[in-house]
């Protein structure tokens, strides 16, 4: 669906995006992550045909975004970052205007309008003037606009920014639902959202792709992906030394040394060392209060991959 090859984009000397390569297949929901200024929005603007690439080739649904821009724009629904809308129009009027602009056949406009209003829960405000709507409703109007021509590909630039938790949950459900029919590329800073909705994550930093994998695999990559949290009654130095000796343990870190000793045991990626650790504790006769496996979050993966 999306095929990006060696994409670079410079703004008067500053390289916003450098040599980006990635593919998105039909039916995927891909989360596009990265710190502010990493080049996410720029890449999305290029994909939607708004900005031309400085270098490289970008194809959407087999069409080149520069030379066949109209074909590309017919097939995508793009929701820009800060939801620019015509404030003087009514919701119905605006959606009808956008549907016509996006060449929805006249006979289907009514049906499509009803469908997107239903999807985005806009029925209550469809006669209101957009300028008077709250942030959450504006966001949904923009989403309805992106969906109105039933595009193959949805490009959503921070669709949940500025929404309250209920609305975020609603949008998340909506995206999951839409993912059954559409290919979606969405950018966000809310990592839990990506973990819950996306099949794949692209992490971009300073204009380069740092990682591209499923959320689950990404968290495995991170140091501490399979770390253990141990709380025992023992001498800190002694315990650290003895636990480090267990097979496949890479490192032991003392977290807290009080009445009880808290430790974190890092194993080699993908290996379970709980048995070995427990065997040592039993052999030494330490009192044990906690032995738990900790999962790295996507947040940790994100921080690790994008830190300087």
């Amino acid at each position: 669906m999306i095929d990006v090859q060696n994409l670079s984009k410079s703004y008067s000397g500053f390289r916003a995006v450098q040599n980006l390569n990635f593919k998105v297949d039909r039916g995927e929901i891909v989360g596009f992550l990265g710190p502010n200024g990493a080049g996410k929005s720029t890449t999305m603007k290029i994909l939607s045909g708004y900005l031309p690439p400085t270098d490289g080739q970008v194809k959407v649904a087999g069409f080149d975004v520069v030379s066949e821009s109209l074909e590309v724009r017919r097939r995508i629904g793009y929701m820009p970052e800060n939801v620019p809308l015509y404030n003087d129009m009514r919701v119905n009027e605006f959606l009808r205007f956008r549907a016509k602009l996006k060449q929805v056949p006249g006979s289907r406009i009514k049906e499509r309008l009803e469908a997107v209003k239903q999807l985005c829960a806009l029925q209550d405000v469809d006669r209101k003037i957009i300028g008077t709507l709250s942030k959450g409703y504006r966001q949904r109007v923009a989403l309805a606009d992106a969906l109105v021509h039933d595009p193959d590909l949805l490009i959503l630039d921070e669709p949940t920014i500025g929404l309250d938790p209920h609305q975020i949950r609603a949008v998340r459900e909506l995206i999951k639902d839409l993912g059954k029919k559409h290919t979606i590329l969405l950018s966000t800073h809310i990592l839990s959202e990506v973990e819950m909705t996306c099949n794949r994550v692209l992490i971009i930093n300073r204009g380069r792709i740092e990682a591209s994998d499923t959320p689950a695999n990404l968290t495995k990559l991170v140091r501490g992906g399979g770390s253990l949290r141990v709380e025992v009654k023992a001498d800190a130095k002694d315990a650290a030394a003895k636990l480090s000796a267990v097979a496949d343990v890479e490192d032991v870190e003392v977290l807290l040394e009080k009445d009880w000793l808290q430790l974190r045991v890092f194993a080699k990626p993908g290996i379970d060392v709980r048995d070995g650790v427990y065997a040592v504790i039993k052999r030494e006769g330490w009192d044990l209060r906690e032995l738990a496996r900790e999962r790295a979050t996507l947040e940790e993966a994100f921080v690790e991959l994008t830190q300087d």
């Binding site: 708004y50 109209l70 793009y78 820009p80 800060n82 620019p84 015509y86 602009l101």
Partner: peptide, 11 residues
């Protein structure tokens, strides 16, 4: 308002 972006990403 930035609406130009929305306008020019339509066909």
């Amino acid at each position: 308002l930035g609406t130009i972006e929305m306008l020019l990403t339509a066909p």
